[in-house]
């Protein structure tokens, strides 16, 4: 009698891996298949992305590296200084740049630009910075003074007038509060913002996207909807096949 009860009790055991009803068994098989697709597509892809990535420097970093030693030693030529400023500006133009890193870089841009200005033009250039510093965005003459300062600086740092660098540099010159260069921190900031994890999955473009970005931001969501749709259709077929009324 006791044995009979135990047998009955066991027949009511239910487990995902050892299903005891036909519905649970079919559901388990379907779920395992779909969950495998789900896991591999999300985690498998990102593990693969991690395995194949290599730290890849931007062009600005490669150029910065070529001139950095001479900048530190104070032996940089004019063109080396110009290269450094362009590299630094390419970091200063980044939206995610934090406040502290900005200070390290704009201080260095301020100092090296100053070094590039011929002695006889120094006072005029400083006056332009001082005049622009007094203006706030939206005030009269703000745009004129900015443009004037940008044009002058563009000449010294070797970029075209109206270029992005020429538009950025006036803002950095007035933001800088000293001429002190913190070489160690500048090196850290440049490496942090100019070296990225890249691979063929990030370099290949698809529908205009870097492929990995398209995969995660667009494709995975399509896949999730597809998996859900497939599950609903498949489970309904199983339910109908088993003649179950829900």
């Amino acid at each position: 009698m006791e044995n009979q009860e135990t047998v009955n009790e066991k027949s009511y055991d239910i487990s995902f891996f050892k299903p005891t009803t036909e519905l649970a068994r079919s559901n388990r098989n379907l779920a395992i298949g779909l969950l495998l697709v789900w896991m591999i597509s999300i985690f498998g892809f990102h593990i693969w992305l991690r395995i194949i990535e290599t730290p890849t420097p931007e062009k600005a970093y490669t150029q910065y590296e070529m001139v950095w030693d001479n900048i530190k030693l104070g032996q940089a030529t004019v063109s080396e200084k110009q290269i450094y400023i362009k590299s630094a500006l390419s970091v200063l133009g980044k939206v995610t740049l934090d406040k502290e890193s900005r200070i390290f870089l704009n201080t260095s841009v301020n100092k090296i630009t100053e070094e590039l200005v011929p002695e006889n033009e120094k006072s005029d250039f400083k006056n332009k910075i001082a005049a622009f510093k007094l203006k706030k965005f939206g005030e009269d003459q703000y745009q004129e003074l900015k443009k004037d300062l940008g044009s002058s600086a563009a000449k010294y740092i070797g970029v075209e007038d109206y270029s992005l660098e020429a538009k950025l540099i006036p803002l950095e010159l007035v933001a800088a509060e000293s001429y002190n260069m913190d070489y160690d921190n500048i090196a850290l900031v440049m490496a942090k913002y100019l070296i990225h994890n890249q691979s063929y999955l990030t370099d290949f473009t698809f529908l205009g996207f870097p492929f990995h970005y398209f995969y995660t931001a667009v494709f995975l969501l399509v896949l999730f909807v597809g998996l859900c749709l497939y599950y609903c259709i498949a489970i309904q077929k199983i339910i109908n096949r088993l003649g179950i009324e829900e």
């Binding site: 990102h46 931007e58 600005a60 133009g93 980044k94 490496a191 913002y193 990225h196 890249q198 870097p210």
Partner: peptide
């Protein structure tokens, strides 16, 4: 603000687990 629709190269926006993030 009257600023150009322009930006310096910013791969950190799209690259995975970028150090700058």
């Amino acid at each position: 603000f009257g600023n150009d629709f322009a930006i310096t190269p910013s791969p950190e926006y799209a690259m995975p687990w970028d150090p700058s993030s």
